[in-house]
Amino acid sequence: MMKIVVLSDTHMPKKGKSLPERLVEELPSADAIIHTGDWHSKEVVEELKKYGPPLYGVYGNVDGEDIQSVFPYKQTIELNGFRIGLIHGHGEKKTTEKRAVEGFKGEEVDLIIFGHSHLPLTRYMNKVMLFNPGSVTDKRKMPYYSFGILRLEENIHAEHVFFT
């Protein structure tokens, strides 16, 4: 079993001065950390790296050259036998979800993880799981902040962790 902590849209330090305690509780037991963009500052990258597991990510629409020089616009990674597409989901027209799906059109992936909308989501489209962890620092109109935990076994088990 592999445990992956998934987050997006940290927008730090603008929306938060530090990683929320509820998220920090999960990071030491993670086998990998995924961030799907809008880090806002390189300090977030450095902070997440301190926890030890591999850090995977992409850049978002608010990320500057400091983040874009470290992370790509999109990428596909393989963890525990699953092909996982990472993309922020920003762009023109259509919904964030549709842009995320189109980003991997023609590619075989088991899971697409995206951010941008700050709206937690888990659903399937054509046998591909779509997952948006929400935001740990900017809940917008949602009642709670959120991030995700994926457990990769024979199947993908996805859950959202909601907190105030």
Results as ranks from 00 to 15, higher is better:
Val58Met: 12
Leu55Asp: 02
Lys3Met: 13
Leu79Arg: 14
Glu153Ala: 15
Lys139Val: 11
Thr137Lys: 07
Tyr51Pro: 05
Val6Leu: 09
Pro72Trp: 11
Ala100Leu: 12
Asp63Met: 06
Val58Gln: 14
Thr76Trp: 00
Leu119Arg: 13
Gly89Val: 05
Ile156Asp: 12
Glu97Leu: 14
Pro133Ile: 10
Pro54Ser: 09
Phe104Met: 10
His116Phe: 13
Lys93Pro: 00
Asn155Ser: 10
His118Glu: 11
His40Asn: 12
Pro120Phe: 08
Leu48His: 02
Asn155Tyr: 07
Asp138His: 09
Leu121Pro: 01
Lys15Ile: 08
Tyr144Trp: 10
Val45Ala: 02
Lys49Cys: 03
Val109Gly: 07
Arg99Asn: 07
Gly148Arg: 07
Leu23His: 03
Thr164Leu: 11
His40Arg: 09
Glu159Tyr: 07
Leu7Asn: 08
Met142Phe: 13
Ser8Val: 01
Glu47Leu: 11
Phe104Ser: 02
Gly52Trp: 09
Asp110Glu: 04
Glu97Val: 14
Tyr59Gln: 01
Thr164Met: 12
Gly115Pro: 00
Glu153Asp: 14
Glu107Asn: 12
Tyr56Met: 00
Glu43Tyr: 07
Tyr51Ile: 12
Ser8Gln: 11
Val128Leu: 09
Val128Tyr: 10
Val5Lys: 10
Lys94Tyr: 08
Pro120Ile: 05
His11Tyr: 11
Tyr145Trp: 11
Gly103Ala: 07
His40Lys: 05
Tyr124Glu: 15
Leu23Met: 12
Val161Met: 08
His118Pro: 02
Asp31Gly: 14
Met2Phe: 13
Val109Pro: 08
Phe71Pro: 01
His35Ala: 09
Met129Ile: 10
Val44Gln: 05
Arg123Ser: 07
Tyr145Ser: 07
Glu108Tyr: 04
Thr137Asn: 12
Asn80Asp: 13
Gly91Asp: 08
Thr137Cys: 13
Ser117Tyr: 05
Gly85Trp: 04
Lys17His: 10
Pro143Leu: 05
Glu159Leu: 04
Gly16Phe: 03
Leu7His: 12
Lys3Glu: 14
His88Lys: 01
Ile77Phe: 10
Gly106Leu: 03
Trp39Ile: 08
Val24Gly: 00
Thr10Leu: 10
Leu55Lys: 08
Asn155Trp: 02
Ile34Val: 14
Asp9Ala: 03
Lys50Met: 10
Val24Pro: 00
Phe114Val: 13
Gly64Tyr: 09
Lys139Tyr: 07
Val70Phe: 09
Glu21Val: 06
Ile84Met: 01
Phe147Gln: 13
Tyr144Val: 04
Arg22Phe: 05
Ala100Gln: 06
Leu7Phe: 09
Gly106Ser: 01
Glu97Tyr: 02
Glu108Arg: 15
Lys17Pro: 00
Lys14His: 13
His88Cys: 02
Leu48Glu: 03
Ile156Ser: 03
Glu78Ser: 12
Gly91Thr: 07
Lys93Trp: 04
